[in-house]
């Protein structure tokens, strides 16, 4: 079990569990509606350039690195 770190630091192909979203209320509610809320598993599909693509369940989102630094995750593990 690794410690808590921002989603932005994860490399492509890793999975983790969201612990906290450090954003304003509006953004937090929006992310919740999109399925990005504490205790969900996210997988980083692609981490090129300025932004990354993550998957939550079957949905894919592109988020900027700025956004991804506000999402804290734990339990990082390399997917097989």
């Amino acid at each position: 079990m690794s410690c808590v770190c921002p989603l932005a630091f994860l490399s492509a192909g890793t999975e983790a569990t969201i612990t906290e979203i450090r954003a304003g209320k509006g953004m937090r509610l929006r992310l919740t509606g999109m399925g990005l809320c504490p205790e969900t598993r996210v997988k980083v599909q692609c981490a090129n350039r300025g932004s990354l693509i993550v998957s939550v369940g079957d949905a894919r989102y592109a988020l900027s690195r700025g956004m991804a630094t506000k999402i804290l995750v734990r339990g990082t593990q390399e997917a097989a």
């Binding site: 592109a62 988020l63 506000k70």
Partner: peptide, 12 residues
Amino acid sequence: GESSPFIMEMPP
């Protein structure tokens, strides 16, 4: 200011 951070769905 900086361009604001974004999140956008990638439809299949």
